[in-house]
Design a protein around this nucleic acid. Structure first.
Length: 807
DNA sequence: ATCCAGTGTCATGGA
DNA sequence: AATCCATGACACTGG
C-alpha cells in the first residue's frame, strides 16, 4: 500500500513538475505541504531517529503521523530531526531554507512582468493568464486529463491561489470542484487524514464541518468579482510579497483554502517552486556549470565531503545549488533526478520541521483558520492576523535575510535566461554564490591559479595568461569556501557552547552516575550506548545476585532498598539520570532557561526516617524533596510511610508480602520462583507479586529506554559538532592550501620571468614572454613553447623548441 | 489555571 | 509458553 501510494504520489509530483516546466501553473505546493509528513515518511523512511523504535501501532502513523503533539517525545523528535538534518546538511551548503524562500519571493516580484510563463511564483498575473488559458474549453479538459490528479488534489485545498485568480472563473473553479469527483480515494483519504490530524491538534471537527458548509455555500452562491482580488491578495501575501493588502478580500479566499493548512501551503509552495528550479538547474547550462576537472578537484571534494554526504560527492557544488541539486550537469539524469528528489524532500522536510516546530499550532491555526476566516462576523479579522503572522514571520525573516541583496544583484544579468526557460532559477543561485564570493574572487581572480598549475599537469593546455573562459576551479573553490565561511560563523557560535559543555557534561555524567551505564556516552556510536544500556540493566539485575539489596539503580522501591540498607548504589544512578536529563536538554537545546527545570522526582528519597519498617536506613543519599506519587490515588496523608512508599510497596504491605519489592523485582527468575515457593502465598499475593515484578522491571526498562533516547540524541549532537568541527578544520586547511598555491604561483611567475630574461635562442634573441610560455614536464623538464601552439594543440605534447636545464 | 518535564504504568511486540 | 526487554502511549505529579 505504501509503495502504491508512493508511486502514485511521485507520479503526481513528477507530472506536476513537468506541467510547471512547460509553463502551466499547477500548484502542487499545498498538496505537497499537506502531504508532507506522509511523503516524507514514505520517501525518506521512518522519521524516528531511534532505530530501535518499533512502530507497531498503526494508529500512530495514521492519526498523528507518529507523534502525538503532547508527547514528550515530540521535542526530541523534532530535535532529532533537526540534528539529523544538520548532519545531512553538513556536506551541503547550509543555506537556510528560509533564505531560499525569500529569494524566491523577491524574484517573483521582479520577474512578474518578464517571466509570464513561469509557473512557480504563482504570481497573480501569471495565474490569471494561465488560468484563462486553462479555462478555455479546450484547454481545461486537456489539463484535467493530463494533470487531473495534482490539480484536483490541489484545488480543494488551496484553490484560491491557482484557480481563484479570475472571478469569472468561479464557474471554472466549480468545474474543478466538481472535478473533485475525480479525486481519487487516495486524495480523499489524505484529506480526511489531514482533517483528523488537525482535530488531533486541537481543531474541532466543527471547524471542518463549518468550513465544509462554508465551502458548499460558497460553491452555491455566485462568486463576487472581488473574489479575484481577494485571491490575488491572499496569494500574494502567501508568497510573502505584499502583506499590506489582502485583508478586505480574504474572507472569500479563506473559505475553501484554510482547511488545508494555508500557511504550510504558502511556505512550501515557495519551496516547491524552488525545488522545481533546482531541478531545472540540474540540467546542463552554460559555462558556469561546466567545471573543468582539474587536479584540484579531489581536494575540493574532500573539503566538502567530510560529512556523510548524501550528495554523491560532487566535487564542487555551485554555492547555492549544493544543498539541493547535485550539480554535475553531465551526470546521469536519472540519478540526478533521484538525488534531486531526495534533496527536495529534505528541503521540504526542513521547512516542514520549521513550520511544525514553531508549533503544531501552525497547522492548528491553519485548521482553525477556515473557521475564523469563514466566520461571517469578521471574515478577515480573527484568523487572518494569526495565520498571517506566522506566514509573515517566516516569509519576512527570509525576505529580509536574503532577498534584497541577491535579487537586486542578479536580474540584469539573467533576465534573458529567466524569460527564456527554466534556467531562470539556476542563474540566480549561481549568482548569489558568486556575489558572496566576489571578494575572494577578486583577490584570486587577478592571479589565475589554474593558469600555472593546470598546464604542466595537463601538459599542453593553454595556460599562463589566458583561461578567461574556463571557470577557475580555484575560484569556485573559493566561492565554496566563502559560503562555507558564512556557515562557519554560526558554527563558531555553536561551537562555543557545545564542544566544551558537551564534553563537560559527559564527564560529569560519567562521574556522577555510579553505574556503568554512562559508558554509553562513548560518543562512538549509538550501538555502544545500546550495549551500555543493556549492560546497565543487566548489572542492575545481576546486582540482585550478589546482594538482594538491590544495587538496582532504581530507587522507586527505595523502601526495599532502604530496608536492605544498601541503597548506596541506588542513589548513584537516579540522580545521575535525572541530571543527565536536565543537562542533556539544556545542553542539547542550548536553552539556558531550561536550567531551572529540575523536576527531581527522585526515587531515592530520604526514606530512612519515615520508614517504620526499616528505620535503620541511615545515609539515604536522597537529598531532595520527597515525592509522594500516590497522593491522588490513595488517601491523602495517611502516614509518612505510606506517603513515601510507592504504590506497589503499599500494596505489598497491605497484602503482607513477606519480602521486599526490591527482591521481587530484581531477583533472577529462579531465585524469584524459589522465593515465592518458600512462602505460602495466596493467589492475590502471588498476583500482586508478579505485578510488582512486572511493573518494576518495566519501570527500569522505561528508564533505560529514556536514557537511551537521550544518549542517542546526545550522541547525534556530539556527532554533529564533531562533524562541524572537522568541516571547519578542513575548510581552514583548504584556505591554507589556496593561499600556498597562490604563493607558489607568484613564485612561479617570478621564476618564469627570470628564465625568460636569461633565455636566448640560437641567434641570441630573447624569447618574449608574451609569445612563449614555459611548460613543465612531469619528469621535471622545462619546455619553451610558443603560446600559439599551446593553445592550438593543448593535448599533445608540443615539440620542444629547446630543452633547458636551468631549473 | 495552564504548561511542561519527569516519571510510572500499560500494551504490544520482538528476542 | 514463559520471561525479559524495548518502546510508544497515556496518565499523573510537581514545578
Amino acid at each position: 500500500m505504501l509503495y502504491l501510494k508512493k508511486y502514485f504520489t511521485e507520479g503526481l509530483i513528477q507530472f506536476t513538475i513537468l506541467l510547471s516546466l512547460i509553463g502551466v501553473r499547477v500548484d502542487v505546493d499545498s498538496y505537497l505541504s499537506n502531504q508532507l509528513p506522509p511523503l516524507r515518511e514514505i520517501i525518506l523512511g521512518p522519521s524516528s531517529a531511534y532505530t530501535q523504535t518499533q512502530f507497531h501501532n498503526l494508529r500512530n502513523t495514521l492519526d498523528g503521523y507518529g507523534i502525538h503533539p503532547k508527547s514528550v517525545d515530540l521535542d526530541q523528535f523534532f530535535t532529532t530531526r533537526r540534528l539529523l538534518n544538520q548532519v545531512r546538511q553538513l556536506d551541503r551548503l547550509s543555506v537556510p531554507s528560509t533564505e531560499l524562500n525569500a529569494w524566491l519571493v523577491h524574484r517573483d516580484q521582479e520577474t512578474v512582468v518578464s517571466a509570464a510563463s513561469q509557473s512557480s511564483p504563482s504570481i497573480t498575473l501569471d495565474n490569471g493568464a494561465g488560468l484563462e488559458d486553462l479555462s478555455s474549453p479546450d484547454a481545461t479538459p486537456a489539463m484535467r486529463g493530463g494533470g487531473g490528479a495534482p490539480e484536483s488534489t490541489y484545488n480543494p485545498n488551496a484553490a484560491d491561489s491557482s484557480l481563484g485568480a479570475v472571478a469569472p472563473e468561479h464557474s471554472q473553479e466549480q468545474g474543478t470542484r466538481d472535478g473533485n469527483d475525480d479525486l481519487t480515494k487516495e486524495d480523499i483519504d489524505l484529506i480526511d487524514i489531514l482533517w483528523r490530524q488537525d482535530i488531533d491538534l486541537g481543531a474541532g471537527r466543527e471547524v471542518f464541518n463549518y468550513s465544509n458548509r462554508q465551502k458548499d455555500s460558497e460553491e452555491e452562491k455566485p462568486r463576487p468579482e472581488e473574489s479575484k482580488e481577494g485571491r490575488e491578495a491572499q496569494e500574494s501575501w502567501r508568497n510573502g510579497v505584499n502583506l499590506q493588502e489582502a485583508p478586505p478580500v480574504d474572507g472569500e479566499t479563506g473559505e475553501s483554502i484554510p482547511e488545508q493548512l494555508p500557511p504550510c501551503g504558502s511556505q512550501t509552495s515557495l519551496s516547491f517552486q524552488e525545488c522545481l528550479r533546482l531541478l531545472e538547474a540540474t540540467f546542463p547550462f552554460g559555462e558556469e556549470s561546466e567545471f573543468p576537472t582539474p587536479v584540484v578537484a579531489p581536494e575540493i571534494g574532500t573539503a566538502n565531503e567530510e560529512a556523510p554526504s548524501t550528495s554523491q560527492g560532487l566535487p564542487l557544488a555551485p554555492p547555492l545549488a549544493p544543498p539541493l541539486a547535485p550539480p554535475p550537469p553531465h551526470a546521469e539524469p536519472q540519478l540526478d533526478l533521484e538525488q534531486q528528489w531526495q534533496d527536495i524532500m529534505a528541503i521540504m522536510e526542513l521547512q516542514a520541521m520549521e513550520v511544525n516546530s514553531n508549533s503544531v499550532d501552525t497547522s492548528s491555526s491553519s485548521s482553525s483558520s477556515p473557521e475564523g476566516a469563514a466566520s461571517e462576523s469578521t471574515p478577515m479579522g480573527t484568523f487572518e492576523p494569526s495565520t498571517r503572522s506566522t506566514l509573515i514571520n517566516q516569509d519576512v525573516s527570509l525576505h529580509q535575510a536574503s532577498l534584497p541583496s541577491c535579487s537586486q544583484d542578479f536580474p540584469p544579468l539573467f533576465t534573458p535566461q529567466l524569460d527564456a526557460t527554466s534556467s531562470a532559477p539556476r542563474p540566480t543561485m549561481l549568482r548569489l554564490s558568486s556575489s558572496n564570493s566576489s571578494n575572494i574572487n577578486s583577490s584570486f581572480g587577478a592571479t589565475n591559479l589554474t593558469g600555472l598549475f593546470l598546464p604542466p599537469l595537463i601538459n599542453g593546455t593553454n595556460n599562463v595568461t589566458s583561461t578567461p573562459v574556463l571557470p577557475d576551479p580555484f575560484s569556485t573553490l573559493l566561492e565554496d569556501s566563502m559560503l562555507d565561511e558564512i556557515s562557519l560563523l554560526d558554527l563558531a557560535m555553536e561551537e562555543g557552547f557545545s564542544q566544551a559543555q558537551t564534553s563537560q557534561l559527559e564527564d560529569e555524567l560519567d562521574s556522577d552516575s555510579g553505574l556503568s551505564l554512562d559508558s554509553s556516552h562513548s560518543p562512538a556510536s549509538p550501538s555502544s550506548s545500546e550495549t551500555s544500556c543493556s549492560s546497565a540493566a543487566s548489572s542492575s539485575s545481576t546486582s540482585a545476585t550478589f546482594s538482594e539489596e538491590g544495587a538496582v539503580g532504581y530507587s522507586t522501591d527505595s523502601e526495599a532498598a532502604a530496608v536492605e540498607t544498601d541503597e548506596g548504589a541506588v542513589g548513584g544512578y537516579q540522580p545521575g539520570y535525572s541530571k543527565l536529563c536536565r543537562m542533556s536538554y539544556q545542553e542539547f537545546q542550548g536553552l539556558p532557561q531550561l536550567d531551572n527545570i529540575s523536576h527531581n522526582h527522585t526515587y531515592n528519597l530520604p526514606l530512612s526516617s519515615p520508614f517504620s519498617d526499616h528505620p535503620e536506613l541511615p545515609f539515604s543519599t536522597g537529598k531532595k524533596t520527597v515525592r509522594d506519587k500516590q497522593s491522588s490515588k490513595l488517601q491523602p496523608p495517611q502516614d509518612l510511610l505510606d506517603k513515601q512508599s510507592s504504590r506497589d510497596e503499599r500494596r505489598a504491605r497491605a497484602m503482607k508480602i513477606p519480602f521486599s519489592n526490591e527482591k521481587i523485582i530484581n531477583l533472577p527468575v529462579e531465585e524469584f520462583n524459589e522465593l515465592i515457593a518458600k512462602h505460602h502465598l495466596s493467589e492475590a499475593q502471588l498476583a500482586l507479586i508478579r505485578d510488582i515484578r512486572r511493573r518494576g522491571k518495566n519501570k527500569m526498562a522505561a528508564q533505560n529506554c529514556r536514557k537511551r533516547k537521550l544518549d542517542t540524541i546526545l550522541n547525534l549532537e556530539q556527532g554533529v559538532h564533531d562533524l562541524r568541527r572537522d568541516k571547519a578544520r578542513l575548510q581552514k586547511e583548504q584556505m591554507e592550501c589556496v593561499s600556498s598555491i597562490r604563493q607558489m604561483k607568484q613564485k612561479m611567475q617570478s621564476l618564469s620571468q627570470v628564465v625568460f630574461a636569461q633565455l636566448r635562442d640560437e641567434e641570441g634573441r630573447p624569447y618574449p614572454p608574451s609569445e612563449y610560455s614555459l611548460q613543465y614536464g612531469a619528469d621535471g623538464s622545462v619546455l619553451i613553447m610558443p603560446r600559439s601552439m599551446a593553445t592550438a594543440q593543448p593535448s599533445r605534447k608540443p615539440e620542444k623548441k629547446q630543452k633547458d636545464k636551468k631549473k
